[in-house]
Every structure is written in C-alpha cells, then in structure tokens.
C-alpha cells in the first residue's frame, strides 16, 4: 500500500487538540445540502420538469370555445401554478420522508453522525437540500411558464386587437381599455410572488415532514401522516367555524379541534397563489408577513424535530 500517509497522519493526528465544532456551521450544512441536492437530482427529478413543460405546452395550444383572451391567459397561469404547487408539495413530502430512513438503511447516517457533525446540522442540511431542489425546480418551471405566457400574450392580444379594430364604433380609448384588460392577465413582475408563495409552503411542508420522519417507523407512515396534516392544515378556518357554531359539540372534539388548529400549520394561507394568478394587486408587506409566518413554522418544526432527533439511537 501507499506510504504517503505515514508522515502526514503523524503530524496531523497527534497534535490535534479537541476543538469544539460550532453548533451550526454553514459550510457543513452547505455540504450536506449540496450532497442532498446532487443525490435528488441524480434520481432524475428533472423528468418531472419535462412533464410539466409538456402540460404547459398542451395548455398553450388548447383553446376551449368561449374563452376570452384574458381567460385563456389566466388558465395558463392557473394550470401552471397548480402543477407547480402539486409537484412542490409531493416532492417536499416524499423526498424529505425518504431521507432519514434511507440514510439509516444505507448506514450513511452512521458515517455522517460519526463525523463531528452536530445533529442539528444534519437536519438543517437535509432540509436545505430538499428545499434547494424545490427552489431550482420552481425557478425552471416558472421560467418556462413566463416564456409561454409571454408568447401567448403577444399572439392572442394582437389577434384580438386586430379583430376589435374591425368593429364599428370602436374608438381608440375603448381599444386601449380592452387591451389593458387583456394584458392584465399577461406576464408581470408581481406574478413572481406565486412561485415564492409555493416555495414558502414547501418549506413548511418539508419541515413538518422532517419532524415526522424523526420518529416515524416507516416512510409510508411519514408520507401518509404528512399528507393528512397538509390537508387538515387547509381546514383551519372551517375548524374555527365549526367550533364557534356548534355550541353543544363534544368537549373532546372541541379540544381536539383547538389542538389541531394550534399545532398544525395553516396551509390555506399559502393559497394566495390563486389571487396572484388572478392579477389581484399584491401588497409586499403581506408577502413579508407570509415569509415571517413561514419562518416561524419552519423554526418551530425544526426545533421539535431536533428534540426528537437529538438523542435518538441508531
């Protein structure tokens, strides 16, 4: 075998004094995140994107009768955002759920945790890796949508305008108004808030799933419970409603409802995507608050995940 190790091992090993690794080391988290990213990408996640592209392309060529130009543009956005949403949620849940069990199965968890890696770093790195993939996919998908929407807007609007110009009684002001109405549903900067909201939602979903996977007995359990919490998380308002209305509700049910509302994130908040797609004006302050809420959820669920994971044995 090689003799090159002889001298180096001597010098490095012997004098190494126990240096406490920082609790959170960005470079360590980053390397865990990038490995997760590479791992997930090489699992051919990109095929999803291809399918997405196809769907959007189909929508682009699909013009159901009776749709106005504004409606056509809006359906392109609606369908694209729905696909982005579903993809992000499925991906965030599934990939987060398989990470820890897979590491355990491959014993990579042993090799990672037997390096000077605090367990918080491990969790953070994993979560970040998943979110990096989600983010990258959202960017690609959004770029694709933007391109399609832009082309569609140009083609449809100019066709419609030349049709309108033929109309009797058409004055330039009306024409301008109608064009504005159509273009309102076209490509605009505030539309970028939609993938952002989807990403924030994916953050929370991934954090919740990570928490579940720290104690779940199987990946399937994690995925199912995660999906259930995801759906329950859309029921916050109605849970409140039911609790308010139904005064003679079972005390146990009422308590349970309250607990659910307190513990499960309110995922309905992130459905602002609908409003953004409908070209409603977006207040950046509200998006900032949404970001804040996301941060609180993520930190909260990371914290409980860490509590479970901290002295977990493998």
């Amino acid at each position: 075998m090689s003799d090159t190790t002889t001298s180096t091992a001597e010098s490095a090993g012997k004098d190494a004094s126990p240096v406490r690794p920082p609790l959170i080391s960005p470079s360590r988290i980053w390397s865990l995140a990038t490995v997760t990213f590479t791992q997930l990408l090489r699992m051919k996640v990109l095929y999803f994107m291809l399918i997405f592209g196809l769907i959007v392309a189909v929508i682009f060529n699909f013009n159901p009768s009776g749709q106005t130009v504004a409606q056509q543009l809006k359906s392109t956005k609606d369908v694209s955002f729905a696909v982005m949403n579903v993809f992000s949620m499925l991906f965030a849940i599934a990939s987060t759920a398989i990470l820890i069990p897979k590491d355990l199965e491959d014993r990579t968890l042993y090799t990672i945790l037997s390096k000077p890696v605090p367990r918080l770093d491990y969790l953070l790195g994993r979560l970040m890796g998943v979110l990096m993939v989600v983010g990258a996919c959202l960017i690609i998908m959004y770029a694709f949508l933007a391109l399609v929407l832009f082309v569609q807007e140009q083609i449809l609007v100019s066709a419609e305008l030349s049709r309108l110009r033929e109309q009797p009684q058409m004055d330039s002001e009306t024409l301008l108004n109608m064009e504005n109405d159509m273009r309102k549903q076209g490509l605009h900067w505030p539309l970028l808030y939609a993938p952002l909201a989807i990403f924030l939602k994916a953050c929370v979903v991934a954090a919740v799933t990570l928490f579940l996977s720290t104690f779940a007995s199987s990946t399937l359990f994690t995925i199912i419970v995660s999906a259930m919490l995801f759906l329950i998380g859309h029921f916050h308002k109605s849970t409140y409603e039911v609790l308010m209305e139904d005064t003679h509700a079972n005390a146990v049910v009422a308590l349970l409802g309250k607990l659910v509302v307190l513990a499960v994130p309110n995922f309905a908040l992130f459905n602002v995507v609908d409003g953004i797609a409908a070209a409603e004006p977006v207040d950046p302050m509200l998006m900032g608050q949404l970001f804040l809420v996301t941060a609180v959820y993520t930190v909260l669920y990371l914290l409980v995940a860490l509590i479970v994971f901290m002295d977990k044995e493998f």
Binding site: V261, L269, G275, E280, P281, L292, L300
Partner: peptide
C-alpha cells in the same frame, strides 16, 4: 408543549394576516 406554545404565539399574527389577505382578495376561503 412547544407546538402548542408556538401555536398560541403565532395565531394572532396569522389570523391578522389571513384577514388582510382575504380583504385584499389574494386569499379566498
């Protein structure tokens, strides 16, 4: 306990945000 406490802390902010989002037509429930 942590989840509950977190829930108690965040729900006022969250409810206010939800109301505002509904008011500005971004959110529809």
């Amino acid at each position: 306990a942590i989840l509950m406490a977190g829930g108690l802390l965040r729900s006022p902010l969250e409810n206010r945000l939800e109301t505002r989002l509904v008011e500005t037509h971004l959110l529809f429930t």
